[in-house]
């Protein structure tokens, strides 16, 4: 039953786990996603290889499975380095910030409903989807500080570009999820998945889904929106002056965010953990949907060329934003009328 505060119904989250269960499940979710990231890195390089009619990495271990480990080993053995013009503390903290923001966002992904004494999610709070926006926005500080504190013009330009790009697409992204929130009548991700029992929101909210996906590509700096790190013009954007595992942090956070955006898209539009089979399979379905969407991200990278910067901005402001606004209006009318 929804709580009534000031006469308004709020998303109810009556179920609270025992403290030790909370800690254990947080650790489990974190470890599962953490071990998915290197696999994803390898998977991307393998798939890109196949898309370009070559093998991809296949030297380290069977099928190149040891490649991510070898990469991490190489990055760890590099010299810790700070360029002359860099701002000392900020330069070091920026990559850590992006990782902290990505890990914190993980908490919101639901992998299943409450079963027995355990809710299969990090947290299920009344603010729900706003938590995702709040914490994924902190990654922006990591990129901006990293680029600014490096004291290099390539880094700085890359950081400014990524800042402008992130905030431009965040609006369209926020509006695209609003349609789902209106239909489900709740901000809690668990409630939103439960509301998709009859039909997944990808069907009535197809426009929102597409806008969210495009926004997701832009938010994670993935091609065709990888303008901030456009290697042909900006060397490596905000990461130009970084080396070793600090550079690795940016990559790591990017892949983790890709998984998170896929997770949010699965939750909001593709029925989250829902799928045939016993409830025990719920987390498997959720992970499967996340991975399929992530492979779609990789596929797009192999297919589309990069945008030009003015095209990118006008696409975000002149097409996605009006479209998302119209989607919200139509959804609002339909929700009240029907």
């Amino acid at each position: 039953m929804p709580d009534l505060v000031l006469g308004l119904p709020l998303a109810d989250t009556n179920f609270v786990d025992a403290t030790w269960i909370m800690i254990v499940k947080s650790l489990v979710i974190f470890i599962v996603i953490l071990s998915l990231v290197p696999l994803l890195l390898l998977g991307e390089r393998k798939l890109l290889g196949r898309f370009q009619q070559r093998y991809g990495p296949n030297r380290v271990g069977p099928y190149g499975l040891g490649q991510p480990l070898a990469d991490v080993g190489k990055l760890l053995s590099k010299q810790a380095f700070r360029p002359k013009g860099a701002v000392p503390f900020l330069y070091e903290i920026a990559p850590a910030l992006t990782i902290i923001s990505a890990v914190l966002t993980l908490a919101i992904l639901p992998f299943g409903d409450v079963q027995g004494d355990v809710g299969f999610y990090g947290i299920d709070v009344p603010i729900g989807i706003l938590y995702f926006f709040a914490f994924s926005s902190i990654a922006f500080y990591g990129l901006l500080l990293g680029g600014w504190a490096s004291g290099s013009k390539y880094s700085f330009l890359g950081a400014m570009r990524s800042a402008a790009q992130l905030i431009s697409y965040e609006i369209a992204m926020g509006l695209s999820l609003l349609g789902v929130v209106m239909m489900a009548g709740s901000l809690s991700l668990v409630d939103i998945v439960k509301a998709q029992g009859e039909v997944w929101y990808v069907v009535p909210q197809i426009v929102g889904f597409l806008i969210f996906l495009v926004g997701g590509f832009a938010e994670t700096n993935r091609p065709p929106f990888d303008l901030p790190e456009a290697d042909a013009e900006l060397v490596a954007g905000y990461g130009t002056e970084y080396g070793g595992m600090r550079f690795g942090s940016f990559m790591f956070a990017e892949y983790m965010e890709m998984l998170i955006v896929s997770g949010i898209a699965s939750t909001m539009f593709l029925g989250g953990w829902m799928g045939p089979g016993p409830p025990g399979l719920d987390p498997v379905w959720m992970l499967l949907k996340m991975i399929v969407l992530t492979i779609f991200f990789i596929w797009i990278r192999a297919t589309l060329p990069r945008f030009r910067y003015d095209q990118l901005m006008s696409f975000g402001w002149k097409i996605l934003l009006p479209l998302a606004t119209l989607n919200v209006l139509v959804t609002a009318v339909l929700v009240v009328v029907t």
Binding site: I23, E92, L104, M245
Partner: peptide
């Protein structure tokens, strides 16, 4: 909101490790 603290601690741990291990 307790898991948020757990995730924050894990994030600081991993992020801090990556930033200083070199």
């Amino acid at each position: 909101y307790l898991p948020v603290l757990v995730f924050a601690a894990l994030g600081i741990l991993v992020g801090g490790a990556f930033a200083t291990l070199n």
